[in-house]
């Protein structure tokens, strides 16, 4: 594990809403300790959601999962989840920041808040992905990440449970890699390993 800490931090960012939960589960199953990057999952949640995602997903992967605390350092080989009713920002100092300002697209946490902050943080993004969801959240953020020259992946809207989110991402920027239904998880595995 020593070797890893010498590698500069990089981020894998995943966003989704309705219809993305099972996709997140499947991706977690692909992930095996250790990985050289930090993963951040943002899924829309109701503010009174009491579900603790690291608990729910506990059996899916052996990588450490958490809802970070405010100002916690982002670390490689960790999986982080957003917390209900707060945006989760990533700072240029490599720390997480919670923010309770207005919702984006009726969502807090929003995918845009996290993606935009990550794209401005100066921390390299190994991959950003956007999946099924019924709002336009995330489209702008993933576009910014792509424009910074980082690889971005969007689920094929034709096969998403809720096509609005990936469709809007492609509408705003048509150079994302599209994750087709055929070989969907195989492709994701290749991106991650």
């Amino acid at each position: 594990m020593k070797a890893q800490s010498d590698e500069p931090l990089s981020l894998v960012l995943l966003g989704g809403s309705s219809g993305s939960f099972t996709i997140f589960e499947e991706i977690l199953k692909i992930l095996k300790n250790p990985v050289p990057y930090a993963l951040v999952f943002i899924i829309h949640r109701r503010k009174d959601s009491t579900a603790v995602l690291p608990e729910i997903f506990r059996n899916k992967t052996n990588i450490a999962m958490k809802e970070p605390i405010h100002l916690e350092l982002v670390q490689p080989n960790h999986i982080y989840f957003g917390y209900p009713d707060y945006h989760l920002l990533i700072g240029p100092d490599g720390r997480f920041y919670y923010d309770c300002s207005e919702k984006d697209f009726f969502s807090r946490p929003s995918i845009d808040a996290t993606f935009i902050s990550a794209s401005l943080s100066g921390i390299p993004v190994k991959a950003a992905m956007l999946f099924s969801g019924s709002s336009a959240d995330g489209a702008f953020g993933i576009k910014l990440i792509a424009q910074k020259g980082f690889p971005t992946y969007v689920q094929d809207p034709a096969y998403a449970d809720s096509p609005r989110m990936p469709a809007e991402a492609i509408r705003q920027y048509d150079n994302h890699h599209v994750l087709l239904e055929k070989g969907f998880y195989k492709m994701i595995r290749e991106v991650l390993y």
Binding site: Y97, D99, S117
Partner: peptide, 12 residues
């Protein structure tokens, strides 16, 4: 002030 939040609110 926390810069990430300030950046967000300036943008908004």
């Amino acid at each position: 002030y926390a810069k990430p939040s300030l950046l967000r609110s300036t943008s908004r």
